[in-house]
Structure formats: structure tokens, C-alpha cells
């Protein structure tokens, strides 16, 4: 991988971040007086004056923008009016809880999605294939909050096996993670299957067969690594879906993570926290996309050639 490739991806990621910060700034400014919005309605005139001073609200938009940008770069996202603490602190203490949920869901996605996709591809057209594909369509169509509610109805209300909400044990984690992981697992299974099918029909697979390489070895050494390339990209794309899904799922299961914090903060218009969550998620997404791009370049050496702009003929 040449440094130009990594550099251009880094530049792209930074640009996305800058766009997000600018977007938040524009929304913040366009929605009214930030002093009124960011502070509570009962804020004292003195507090409002301090706030105006600090964010330079009496200066030009450009200066305001630069002030905002500097503050964000220093990790200063304002103060949550609910408990008066810095918004970043409020957000950061929710991160581990969400990460626990997110990684468990990701694990479920991989464990469910990839093997079922591979098996479906290897036994194409069989009942296994059809069953897997039916499940992927179902998993893709069912809204995750509805799935969560069904699970609660069945396993908490009716069977009384699992707790319906809260955190604290593995059993609390099970249903939210399953709910969150299913939709992504469906997508991954579908992509793994089609990617495997593509690879299995490539000439090099026939060559491997002609060379007398054993079936299992062909699949493991030749097919899987090549099939992994598109799957990695899709996985990266699904992480955005996981984060979006976490917002509803955490609300359904009262899982005290970032998503629930975001929904509660939106409801109570605790906007310092809202913007902190949005910027943190944007940052995460940029990092994830960067990692996916790098993994992609590492898995597929041809990608650099693809990335170059081809001159017109």
C-alpha cells in the first residue's frame, strides 16, 4: 500500500469530520439563538451573558465558526444543562455500555452471517440455501424495534425467561444484542453467499481443481480469502446501521448507552449532549471507514490501481 493511498483516505475522512462539525454549527446557528438553545430556559441573564462572551456570539459568523471549531478540537462540547457537567463527560461514561452491546451484536452478526452465507453458497439451490435466503429476507425486512418488542413479549412477558430491560448480566445483554445483530447478519449472509458464488465460478478455482488441490483446501485457501474482500466492505457499511440501530434498540430495552442518551437528550433538548453524541458517532464512523478502506487495500492489492483516476481514452 503506498502512502498516497492512505493519505488520500485520511484526507477524505478528515473532510467528512469537518463537514459534520460545520453541519452541526450551521444547524446550531440556524435554529435560533444558541445561548437560548444551549442553556436551559431558566438560565440567569448572567449565565447567558457569559455564554455569549465565550462563544463570541457578538462577533462575525466566521469568528464564531472558528471559535466553535477550536473548542470542538479541544474536546469542549459545552455543558449539559441537566446535570451541569461537561457534555463530553456525560457522553463518554455511556460509551463502554454501548460498546459492550455493539461488539456483542457484531460478534452475533459474524457468527450467524458468514457461516450461513458460505454454507448457502456451497450448497446452492438446496433446501439449506433456500432456508438461509428466506431468513435473510425476513431478517432484512423486520424493523429491529418490532423484533425487540416481539422478543420481549415472548421471552420476558410470556415465558419469563429473560429480563425485558436494563443492564447488569449476560441475560440482560442477550436480547438487545440478538435484535441488533440479526438485520446485519442477514445482509452479511446475503453478501457472503453471492461473493462466494462469484469466486467459486472464477477461472482460478477451476485451475486449482485441475491442479488436483483437495476440495476443502480449495475452499479454505482460495475461495474464502477472495470472497472476504466484498464482505469486509459491507461489514464496514453495516457498522453505520449498527450504530443507528443501537439508538432504537437501546430505547426498547432501556439499555443505558449512547443511543438512549441521545434519544433522552433530544426529548429534553439537552443540545450540548446531542451535538457531542453526533460528533462522536461521526468520528467513530470515519475511523471505521478508514479501517475498512485500509483492510480492503490490504486484502486486495489491486485496489490502488482501481482508485486511480483513469484518463479519458
Amino acid at each position: 500500500m503506498n502512502p498516497g493511498f492512505i493519505l488520500s483516505k485520511l484526507a477524505r475522512g478528515s473532510l467528512t469530520l469537518l463537514l459534520t462539525v460545520s453541519f452541526v454549527f450551521i444547524v446550531l446557528r440556524a435554529s435560533g439563538d444558541p445561548a437560548q438553545i444551549m442553556l436551559s430556559d431558566e438560565a440567569s441573564p448572567a449565565a447567558i451573558a457569559t455564554f455569549r462572551e465565550r462563544w463570541g456570539l457578538d462577533r462575525s459568523y466566521l469568528e464564531q465558526y472558528l471559535t466553535y471549531l477550536t473548542a470542538v478540537l479541544q474536546g469542549d462540547f459545552g455543558t449539559s444543562f441537566r446535570d451541569g457537567r461537561p457534555a463530553l463527560d456525560v457522553v463518554m461514561e455511556r460509551v463502554p455500555v454501548t460498546l459492550l452491546l455493539g461488539f456483542t451484536a457484531l460478534l452475533i452478526t459474524l457468527v450467524l452471517g458468514i457461516p450461513s452465507g458460505i454454507i448457502a453458497a456451497l450448497f446452492r439451490g438446496s433446501w439449506v440455501d433456500r432456508l438461509t435466503m428466506s431468513f435473510t429476507i425476513l431478517g432484512h425486512s423486520i424493523p429491529n424495534f418490532f423484533l425487540g418488542i416481539i422478543l420481549i413479549l415472548v421471552f420476558s412477558m410470556t415465558l419469563r425467561w429473560l429480563p425485558s430491560s436494563g443492564t447488569g448480566s449476560f441475560w440482560h445483554l442477550l436480547m438487545p444484542a440478538l435484535t441488533l445483530g440479526t438485520a446485519a447478519a442477514a445482509t452479511i449472509a446475503r453478501f457472503t453467499r453471492s461473493s462466494m458464488l462469484d469466486v467459486l465460478h472464477q477461472p482460478f478455482m477451476r485451475t486449482a481443481k485441475a491442479k488436483g488441490i483437495a476440495h476443502d483446501k480449495r475452499i479454505l485457501r482460495h475461495a474464502l480469502p477472495n470472497a472476504a474482500i466484498p464482505v469486509v466492505t459491507v461489514l464496514g457499511m453495516r457498522i453505520g446501521g449498527l450504530i443507528g440501530g443501537a439508538v432504537t434498540i437501546e430505547t426498547v430495552f432501556a439499555w443505558p448507552g449512547l443511543g438512549m442518551l441521545l434519544v433522552n437528550s433530544v426529548n429534553q433538548r439537552d443540545l450540548a449532549v446531542v451535538q457531542a453524541v453526533v460528533l462522536l458517532i461521526a468520528f467513530t464512523m470515519v475511523v471505521v471507514n478508514l479501517m475498512v478502506d485500509l483492510a480492503y487495500g490490504w486484502l486486495d492489492p489491486r485496489i490502488e490501481v482501481h482508485n486511480r483516476r483513469v484518463a479519458k481514452a
Partner: peptide
């Protein structure tokens, strides 16, 4: 295309929530 990439990079539910929160 930069806007397209931006749109694809950030989960839209989050953006929508933020905008609804502010406005």
C-alpha cells in the same frame, strides 16, 4: 460526491434526530 460520501458515512437516523432536536 463529497456530500454523497458524507451522507453515506453518517447514520442518517442520528442526523435526523439531531436536526429534530435543534429545530
Amino acid at each position: 460526491m463529497m456530500l454523497v460520501d458524507f451522507q453515506a458515512a453518517i447514520p442518517f437516523l442520528i442526523v435526523a434526530l439531531a436536526v429534530l432536536a435543534f429545530f
